[in-house]
Amino acid sequence: MESKRQRQVAELIKRNFSIVLQQEGVYIYGTQPLVTVMEVQVSPDLSVGKVYLSIWNTENKQAVILQMEEDHARLKSALAHRLKRQLRRLPELSYFIDETLDEMNKVDNIFDRLYAEDQMPEGGSGAKDE
């Protein structure tokens, strides 16, 4: 169960890290990948943060994460500068790929294909609106 302070710090990091990626991301991983902060989870002692990122417009998502880890000092410095008045210590951040939207698109494509091939029954509670 997350405490109120954990949720506050996570939201603060999420909002500000998004801005940092807009400003610094071009210098780290280029202009092609579109990186979005989906969620941040902070440990109960506020020392560790997990940043879940959605990465679009590139085939090699892990390469973007590796580039961010290489320039971790630059990202952390920019984030610390933005949060210096709100937090005493910035949690140690680690980056993860959030596959939620990719999985959602795969399921949508499967349903679209099934409807196109008339393998899904018409009507009922699972009917697709068109």
Rank of each mutant, 00 (worst) to 15 (best):
K106G: 03
Q22A: 04
E69H: 13
H81W: 09
K61C: 04
L12I: 04
E24P: 07
E130H: 13
S47Y: 01
E69G: 03
E70C: 05
I19T: 12
V35M: 04
K61W: 00
R85M: 09
D118K: 15
L87V: 03
Q22C: 02
K76T: 11
V35T: 06
V37W: 11
Q62P: 04
L90R: 08
L75W: 05
S54V: 07
S94G: 06
L87F: 04
Y95R: 01
I97T: 08
G124L: 15
K76E: 11
V35R: 01
T100H: 08
N105W: 06
L101V: 10
T36M: 06
H81N: 08
D102T: 13
L34G: 00
M104D: 02
V42H: 13
N57V: 02
K61F: 00
Q23R: 12
E69R: 15
N109E: 14
T36S: 08
D118R: 15
A73F: 02
E59Y: 05
V37R: 07
L53M: 11
N57H: 10
V64A: 10
N57R: 08
E122Y: 15
K4F: 07
F111V: 15
M68A: 02
L79C: 08
I97W: 01
Y95A: 01
G30A: 09
L53E: 06
P91C: 13
S125V: 10
P121Y: 11
K76F: 04
V51P: 05
L114P: 15
S77K: 15
F96Y: 13
E130C: 05
D102K: 09
L21W: 13
L90T: 10
L114S: 14
E70N: 08
L46I: 06
M1A: 14
G124I: 11
R15L: 06
K106R: 12
V35K: 01
N57W: 06
V42F: 08
Q62G: 01
D108L: 14
L90Y: 04
N60K: 12
V35Q: 01
V42A: 11
A127M: 05
Q22W: 03
E130L: 12
K61V: 02
D98H: 04
V9L: 03
Y95C: 02
K84Q: 15
L83H: 02
I110V: 14
W56G: 05
E11N: 15
Q86W: 00
V107K: 09
E11V: 07
L34T: 05
D45G: 13
M38Y: 07
Q119A: 14
V40Y: 02
A10D: 01
V64G: 06
R7I: 10
E59R: 03
T31G: 06
R89G: 01
Q119T: 14
A10Y: 10
L90F: 06
K4R: 09
R5C: 08
E92G: 02
R74E: 11
V64E: 03
T31I: 09
V26A: 02
R5P: 12
V26M: 03
K61N: 07
F17C: 00
T58I: 14
L12S: 06
N60Y: 03
E103I: 10
A78L: 11
